[in-house]
Computed example of a mutant assay.
Amino acid sequence: MNAGGPGRAASAVGGRGGRASRPLWWFLAAAPAVLGAAIAAVLAAAGDLRQVQVRIALPAVAAGAGILLSVIALGVLAVIAVRTRRRVRAQIALDAAMARGAAQERQHHARFLARLDHELKNPLTAILATSAAAQNNVGGAESWPIVDAQAAKLGALVRDLRKLADLESRPLEREPVDLEQLLVEAIAALAQQDPASGARMALTVTRVPWPVPPISADLDLLSLAVDNVLGNAAKYSESGPIEVRLREEAGQAVIDVADTGRGIPESDLPQVFDELARAQNARDVAGSGIGLSLVAAILRRHGGAVALRSAEDSGTVVTLRLPLA
Rank of each mutant, 00 (worst) to 15 (best):
T206L: 13
L167I: 09
S216F: 02
W144T: 05
D148H: 09
V177I: 13
A151T: 09
A188I: 02
S223E: 13
L182K: 03
L222W: 01
M201P: 01
L183H: 01
K121Y: 09
A191H: 08
L161S: 04
Q150E: 12
T206D: 15
K153N: 09
M201K: 03
P171Q: 06
W144C: 01
E142C: 08
I215W: 11
A191P: 00
V177L: 13
D194P: 01
V138E: 14
A199K: 15
A188V: 01
T130M: 14
A149N: 10
R162M: 07
M201Q: 08
T204S: 14
P195V: 07
A152W: 03
S223L: 02
L128T: 12
D166H: 07
L128Y: 09
L164D: 15
R207N: 06
L157S: 06
E180Y: 09
A133P: 00
G140M: 08
P171C: 05
L190R: 09
A134L: 14
V184S: 13
K163C: 05
E142S: 11
D220F: 02
I187F: 04
A189T: 08
P214G: 06
A191L: 03
A188G: 11
E168R: 14
W144R: 09
A126F: 02
P123W: 01
A132N: 13
E175Y: 02
D194Q: 14
D178E: 09
K121W: 09
S216L: 04
N122P: 01
A191R: 11
A165G: 04
L167E: 10
Q150A: 01
K163D: 08
P209R: 12
L167V: 08
A134H: 07
A189E: 13
V158N: 12
T125I: 12
E175H: 03
K163I: 02
D160Y: 02
P211T: 07
E173H: 09
D178K: 00
D218Y: 02
A217R: 00
A189Q: 13
L224A: 15
E175K: 04
A156M: 13
A132Y: 12
V158S: 11
Q193P: 01
I215T: 03
A132H: 14
V212L: 10
S223H: 03
V147H: 01
S223D: 12
L128V: 14
V205Y: 07
L172C: 05
A149F: 10
W210F: 15
R162F: 05
S131E: 12
L183S: 02
Q193V: 15
V138A: 13
P176D: 07
S197V: 10
S169K: 07
L164V: 14
R162Q: 07
A132K: 13
A133T: 04
I215C: 02
W144K: 05
